[in-house]
C-alpha cells in the first residue's frame, strides 16, 4: 500500500498540515513567552483601560487554538478520512483476494470438518 499514489499524497498532505499547525500553535506560544520576558515595553503598551497588549495576546492564544482545532477538523474531514476509508477498503479487498488464493492453493479440508463443532 505504501507505494499507492493516493497514500503518498495523503502522507505528504498530512505531514505538511501536522508540522505547520504544531509550529504555529507551540511556536506561537513560545514566541509569546519570549516576547513577554525580553520585550516587556512592547507587551505593556495599553490597549484599553488595564488591558495591555500582553494580556490581549494571552487571550489571543486561546482564540488561535480554537482556529487551529477548527482547521484540523476540516482537514481531517475533507482530506484524510475519505482517503483512509478508501485505502482501508482496498486493503480489505487485497486481504480477501490473498485469502481466497491461499484457500485455493491449500488442499481442501475433509468435508464437514468444522461445521458441527461441540460447544
Amino acid at each position: 500500500m505504501s507505494h499507492d499514489p493516493a497514500y503518498q499524497s495523503l502522507r505528504r498532505a498530512h505531514r505538511r498540515f501536522g508540522s505547520r499547525s504544531t509550529a504555529v500553535a507551540v511556536g506561537g506560544f513560545l514566541l509569546y513567552v519570549l516576547l513577554s520576558s525580553f520585550a516587556p515595553g512592547l507587551m505593556n503598551s495599553s490597549l484599553s483601560g488595564h488591558l495591555t497588549l500582553g494580556l490581549a495576546l494571552g487571550l489571543g492564544q486561546f482564540v488561535m487554538m480554537a482556529v487551529i482545532v477548527w482547521r484540523y477538523l476540516v482537514h481531517m474531514r475533507t482530506r484524510v478520512t475519505p482517503v483512509t476509508r478508501g485505502l482501508r477498503g482496498l486493503a480489505r479487498h487485497h486481504d480477501e483476494v490473498a485469502a481466497r488464493g491461499r484457500a485455493a492453493a491449500e488442499p481442501p479440508v475433509a468435508p464437514g470438518a468444522g461445521e458441527f463443532r461441540p460447544w
Binding site: 507551540v26 506560544f29 487554538m65
Partner: peptide, 13 residues
Amino acid sequence: CGTAVAWMMVLLL
C-alpha cells in the same frame, strides 16, 4: 496558558 497549549501537541501530533 502553557497548560492549554500543551494539549495542542496531543491533538495535532
